[in-house]
Amino acid sequence: MAIDAEQVRRIAHLARIGLAADEADRYIGDLESILTMVERMHAVNTAGVQPLAHPIDVTQRLRPDVVTEADQRESYQSDAPAVANGFYLVPRVVE
């Protein structure tokens, strides 16, 4: 299973993982060996088999439409990296 640097860069960008140049090389090798192992599952004949998302065949429980959560902004923001006036702050996003 061959992976090239461009693919790793594209995936790393989708995942927003910054990779230094030497790291990228290392992940190319790792991904190749992992995907080679993963490819073994293609030997299994799954014709006509429905994909299974959850191991137990149950359906979604629904929640009554009532407000149960009180404001806990101070608690939730106490460990936030950057806040002001109740807002979370990030570098200026250019639109």
């Binding site: 002001a84 006036n85 807002f87 979370y88 702050l89 990030v90 570098p91 200026r92 996003v93």
Partner: peptide, 8 residues
Amino acid sequence: QVPGLTAV
């Protein structure tokens, strides 16, 4: 809202 930053 905040100069130079985006407020969320």
